[in-house]
Amino acid sequence: MPQPQCSQDVERQPTVLSSWIKVLLLALRDHGCNADLLLQESGLDHEQLADPDARLPLAATTRLWDLSVQALEDETLGLWVPCYSNQNTFHALGYAFMASSTLLEALQRVARFNAMVSDAARVELDVGENSVVLSWDLWTPDLGPSQEAMEAILSLILRSSRKIRGKDFAPLKVSLLRKRCADETPFREFFQAPIEFGADRYRMEFDRAELEQPLEWGNESLARSSDRVIEDYLKQLEMGSVATRLRNLLVRDLPGGALGHEHYARELGMSGRSLQRKLSAEGSSFNQILNETRCELACSYLGQTPRQSLTEIAFLLGFSDTSSFSRAFHRWTGVAPGAYAP
């Protein structure tokens, strides 16, 4: 029989690394825009940008990009904003990219570590016999990223590649979601390649042989060292989520009975309202985390040999009696505890 799922995947709201937004603000100021006003109108503030490792809500950063395009009246914004970035913008990823032994390795790092920049898209690198395609599949198109934000990512990758391969380096083909352009010339001149407008996803296709040519300034030791820094950052990013920290506290406390969200908010160093807001930003809630944690533990206990009694399991999960536990377990999984087979 199909096994019940004890927990559902939490649909987190995508985020963007704050240092990438600092690049946009720098570009806006240099072009005479009131960047502070646009930042405020987007729902962001300077306090959120103070930490270079901070994560910003994708919806708010998309709003900032949209406001920037309106303020400058420039649909090519994404092509030139990366001029204001540097090797530190994406921390260790920038160093790993530039120290790669080949451009193929550099693009492999882009696909592998994309979540460091933003978890708004699934990035794939398809290595074929003669060509290599780097593509982005957006998770939540309704939240963003904006067209200009994604075009800025493609522009940054191409500009970085040209720094280490030469100014004439170009893809074989580029695909953009943008359907119409008042003037396509700036896009074609920048990419130096045929462009498919109105595509179903963002893509850049390259000649494989060209990507596999050794890079003069490749440094495998530096690149791998940077890889480890990125891996540690991504691990901390997952460990640092409020939902994960709350789940750990609940596992500790459930045998004695779970306490209210205000109690756990204090343990996490925030107000009850802040806890609710942060969990909501991660696509979850206190009750959802509580139920998921109880269900995961219940499935674990029921799968042990010898199996503990339902009374003991109910106690370990903080239920007042067996019948309450049984009703809850059936609601979570669709089967009674006694019928559960791991």
Rank of each mutant, 00 (worst) to 15 (best):
R245P: 00
R245V: 05
L246M: 13
L246R: 08
R247W: 00
R247M: 02
N248Y: 05
L249R: 13
L249W: 09
L249V: 07
L250Y: 01
V251P: 04
R252T: 15
R252N: 15
R252C: 09
D253H: 11
L254I: 06
L254A: 09
P255R: 04
P255A: 00
P255S: 05
G257A: 02
G257Y: 02
G257N: 02
A258K: 06
A258R: 05
L259A: 12
L259C: 12
G260E: 10
G260S: 14
G260Q: 12
G260N: 13
G260I: 07
H261Q: 09
H261K: 04
E262S: 07
E262T: 14
E262M: 13
H263T: 00
H263W: 01
H263G: 00
Y264D: 02
A265Y: 04
R266G: 02
R266I: 06
R266H: 03
E267K: 01
E267S: 01
L268V: 13
L268D: 06
G269C: 06
G269A: 12
G269N: 07
M270A: 03
M270D: 01
M270V: 07
M270I: 14
S271W: 11
G272S: 08
G272T: 03
R273D: 10
S274N: 11
L275F: 06
Q276W: 07
R277V: 15
K278F: 14
K278E: 13
S280H: 15
S280G: 12
A281Q: 11
E282W: 04
G283V: 11
S284E: 12
S284N: 11
S284A: 11
S285I: 08
S285V: 04
S285N: 09
F286R: 01
F286L: 00
N287K: 06
N287D: 10
N287F: 05
N287E: 09
Q288C: 00
Q288V: 03
I289N: 00
I289R: 01
I289A: 02
L290Y: 05
L290M: 06
N291T: 03
E292W: 03
T293N: 09
R294N: 03
R294M: 13
E296H: 10
L297V: 00
L297T: 02
A298R: 14
C299Q: 09
S300A: 07
S300K: 13
